[in-house]
């Protein structure tokens, strides 16, 4: 008997599974198909300005920083300004995201390169698939548009998120992802990012920038 068969046999024996399996199979099939929502906290059910305000507050509480801009055209300027304010070089790495590509980067003095990170980039920008207000979480899906390495290797991560993509709760974002990729399908990686990298492993003291970015800057586009 293979290891697989023996493990399944052991699980079934312990659970006392007998011949009458149809109701169990039906219950499992239905749960996976319907993916019922559980309890969604009230704070995850806001809309409009209250939703964006909560997103902003929660993001700040995770020690991320955030700029709100009106319109995608304003993003390059806002990022150039953020880099100046933070005393950082005017050099960015990004993927092939069309929304980012359509922004007027040439009107700034920013030097832009494209593709994944090999670890030598100081600053990168990705476009989020969504934001979640209940915890100020950014959700970024992998692919050539927004390479996963850009979320982790650079010291400074900048993430652009459309206000219309901000949702109250995680479940709302799963719903959108199911609509985009099909139920039961996922991109290689879905990253939830809630603030900059940190560690408490030395004497329980909170230190930023353990392995991932020491700073996460959000540009929220209205």
């Amino acid at each position: 008997m293979s290891a697989r068969d023996e493990i399944f046999a052991s699980v079934r024996r312990s659970l006392g599974v007998n011949g009458h399996e149809m109701p169990r199979r039906e219950a499992v099939r239905e749960r996976i198909a319907k993916a019922p929502r559980g309890i969604v906290p009230e704070r995850g059910q806001l809309s409009g300005e209250a939703l964006l305000t909560l997103f902003e507050e929660q993001a700040l509480s995770t020690l991320a920083t955030i700029d709100r801009v009106k319109g995608r055209d304003k993003v390059p300027d806002a990022i150039a300004d953020y880099l100046r304010r933070s005393n950082l070089p005017a050099r960015l790495r990004m993927g092939a995201d069309e929304r980012l590509a359509a922004m007027p980067w040439d009107k700034t003095a920013l030097e832009i390169s494209h593709g994944k990170s090999d670890g030598s980039d100081l600053i990168a920008v990705n476009h989020a698939f969504a934001g979640v207000a209940e915890t100020g979480t950014l959700i970024i899906t992998s692919g050539p548009d927004n390479p996963s390495t850009l979320n982790f290797l650079p010291d400074y991560a900048i993430v652009v998120v459309d206000a219309k993509d901000v949702r109250g709760a995680y479940e709302d974002v799963w719903q959108r992802l199911r609509e985009r990729d099909g139920k039961g399908h996922m991109p290689r990686t879905v990253n939830w990012i809630t603030g900059p990298s940190r560690s408490g492993d030395i004497e329980q003291k909170l230190l930023l920038g353990a392995h991932g970015p020491r700073s996460v800057h959000i540009v929220l586009v209205e």
């Binding site: 929660q58 509480s61 995770t62 209940e134 915890t135 979480t137 996922m186 991109p187 290689r188 990686t189 879905v190 990253n191 939830w192 990012i193 809630t194 603030g195 900059p196 990298s197 940190r198 991932g212």
Partner: peptide, 10 residues
Amino acid sequence: EMSVYTTFST
């Protein structure tokens, strides 16, 4: 409220 990185790999 949430850990910094929650990563779903498929």
